[in-house]
Simulated scan of single mutants.
Amino acid sequence: MTIEELRRAYETKREAIRARLAEFEETYRRGDHAIFEELVFCIFTAGASARMGLRCVEAVRPILLTGDESQMLNAINGLHLYPAARAAYIVHTRNYLQREYSLRMQSLLESLTDHYERRRFFAENPNIKGIGYKEASHFLRNIGFRGYAILDKHVLRSLHEFGVIPSPNPPKNARQYLEIESKMKEWADSIQIDFDELDLLLWSNKTGEILK
């Protein structure tokens, strides 16, 4: 794909991409439960797929705030590649956020006023299990925060194909993640496509979907 072809794809998909980004902002406005559910979705998606994450969220929704580890495991057994690990991650994370913040996710997020510190809180917090910089970025984007790249394999391959980065390999640490994100932001500016819209555009070009 050339830059011109990318721009044409953007023109075709722009309204759908903007509608999806508006939906993400609505998730935040729906409140604490919706925000926590989005975090759970990202824990499920890590090392798996968005579709798998969506199926698992549907399965645990009735017990999301009350289920113990065995109940979570039973709900997602057969739906996730790593059901035992994900059940443990979600219960630990929920109990931590309940204990320390009463699961008041909006208040917690509003207290994290620095753009980078906000992501670092979720990516590097040992009590928020199962996510790193990619899924912390995914979570924040999916609740309406802008300016975070979700550097999954589809986006990384696209950046490599366009010559933005020298390799499609995933970043090994936070420093590398931030370096690639910075290059992507510079490239978005140079081709005059909004950074957050570009992330969804590249992902949808590879997958055929404008998902979350």
Score class of each variant (00 low, 15 high):
residue 165 I to E: 01
residue 148 Y to V: 06
residue 52 M to Y: 02
residue 203 W to H: 03
residue 131 I to C: 04
residue 71 Q to M: 13
residue 154 H to W: 10
residue 133 Y to Q: 03
residue 89 Y to W: 15
residue 70 S to R: 15
residue 119 R to P: 02
residue 33 H to K: 15
residue 8 R to W: 06
residue 91 V to L: 11
residue 49 S to M: 11
residue 138 H to W: 08
residue 140 L to R: 01
residue 32 D to L: 14
residue 3 I to W: 11
residue 17 I to F: 05
residue 173 N to A: 04
residue 115 H to T: 05
residue 23 E to C: 08
residue 124 E to L: 15
residue 167 S to R: 08
residue 109 L to H: 05
residue 39 L to K: 04
residue 1 M to S: 12
residue 40 V to M: 08
residue 101 Y to N: 02
residue 172 K to Q: 12
residue 34 A to M: 08
residue 124 E to M: 13
residue 177 Y to Q: 05
residue 167 S to L: 09
residue 200 L to F: 10
residue 89 Y to T: 08
residue 193 I to G: 01
residue 44 F to E: 01
residue 188 A to Y: 07
residue 76 I to S: 03
residue 17 I to W: 04
residue 205 N to T: 03
residue 23 E to Q: 13
residue 177 Y to I: 06
residue 171 P to W: 14
residue 132 G to N: 04
residue 95 N to D: 14
residue 159 L to W: 09
residue 125 N to E: 07
residue 9 A to W: 13
residue 111 S to Y: 14
residue 93 T to V: 14
residue 20 R to N: 02
residue 143 I to W: 10
residue 180 I to H: 03
residue 207 T to K: 13
residue 182 S to K: 15
residue 1 M to F: 15
residue 202 L to N: 02
residue 89 Y to D: 08
residue 138 H to E: 00
residue 192 Q to S: 11
residue 126 P to D: 09
residue 44 F to K: 03
residue 73 L to D: 01
residue 15 E to C: 04
residue 151 L to W: 01
residue 5 E to N: 06
residue 54 L to Y: 09
residue 107 S to G: 07
residue 145 F to H: 11
residue 2 T to G: 09
residue 124 E to Q: 13
residue 147 G to P: 01
residue 59 A to M: 13
residue 44 F to M: 05
residue 173 N to E: 07
residue 83 P to N: 08
residue 131 I to K: 03
residue 14 R to D: 05
residue 201 L to I: 05
residue 104 R to M: 09
residue 148 Y to K: 04
residue 148 Y to M: 08
residue 46 A to S: 13
residue 108 L to C: 08
residue 170 P to K: 10
residue 201 L to M: 10
residue 141 R to Y: 03
residue 98 Q to V: 07
residue 64 L to G: 00
residue 162 F to R: 06
residue 59 A to T: 09
residue 75 A to M: 09
residue 149 A to G: 01
residue 171 P to S: 13
residue 23 E to D: 12
residue 77 N to I: 13
residue 9 A to M: 12
